[in-house]
Design a protein around this nucleic acid. Structure first.
Lengths: 148, 148
DNA sequence: GATACAACCTGTGGCCACTACAGATTCAAG
DNA sequence: CTTGAATCTGTAGTGGCCACAGGTTGTATC
């Protein structure tokens, strides 16, 4: 009995990955071109579903397409754990840097918003912060300056 | 004596905003079209520099272009502090949500990397995580190798 | 075998917020 | 008047997709 095969729609449902995105991954070489039916429809085996799940999960964890390309190359060629770890740690650094950036933003905006009383006031501390010449919120301004 | 005027290059240096980006902001309507010299070069007054600084700073604080468009509309129309605050708090929520997402990623990747001993091991805990079911690593790995 | 209709095909263009050219023109200094 | 920097317009590319349009194929039912 022949192995089970998936149309692109079934693959999409199984992996939660948009059909257009599956074709996109194929186009950019993350997914190999699958065999086609007589009429040209893509026909996937279970390996295709696994590979796509890997890609989807990696994207969810924030790996870029070039990263994933590299990870897949390693997987295909029997894995050197070392290299996988390197990619992961680099990615982890980027995530941490991003978190720090966002935390700085959070601080600045939070304190600006705290200074703002809302209502119809003719002056707005938040706007002052955005203009960068705030006298109403000098400490906030100082924080922005060191923002980078 | 006539008020001081800036060419686009001077504006770029003063605000730290790329020349192409300045023209882009004009094209999408964040910056008004400035007067031109006889030969067609843009000529900015100090208000233009202020407005651009506002945009640049808002972008640095993570506001989207539509957000900034709205903030500028409020500024132009004499500000309702309330609305500015609403936009800011919404943005703050988005930033916090993003921070939480990233922290989750950080946790997952960090623990996967901690399980990985590096070296030439034939198994990699990180890869297992990316496949989404860590307990069944070897078979899955075999399955991905060849797609039919 | 005919028909209906879902699934699928390719190709193209849009999204965000820019950035990077190419090739023509203008400005300012000497 | 010449030179070279600055600026002009227009187009295309980035990443990671999504959304069509308009045509073809697969499959279930009559």
């Amino acid at each position: 009995m022949p192995a089970k095969r998936y149309g692109i729609g079934a693959l999409s449902r199984d992996t939660g990955c948009n059909i257009e995105t599956i074709r996109y991954y194929e186009r950019i070489g993350l997914l190999p071109e699958p065999p086609r039916s007589a009429g040209g429809h893509r026909s996937y085996a279970v390996e295709g579903a696994n590979r796509l799940s890997f890609i989807v999960r990696s994207r969810e964890l924030g790996f870029s397409v070039p990263d994933i390309r590299e990870l897949l190359t390693l997987v295909d060629s029997g894995i050197t754990c070392e290299e996988v770890k390197t990619i992961t740690l680099t990615h982890l650094d980027a995530i941490r840097a991003r978190i720090n950036d966002l935390r700085r933003l959070e601080t600045v905006l939070q304190s600006a918003a705290a200074d703002c009383e809302g209502g119809d006031a003719p002056e707005c501390p938040i706007i002052d912060v955005l203009f960068g010449h705030s006298e109403a919120a000098p400490q906030v301004k100082a924080q922005i300056e060191t923002q980078g």
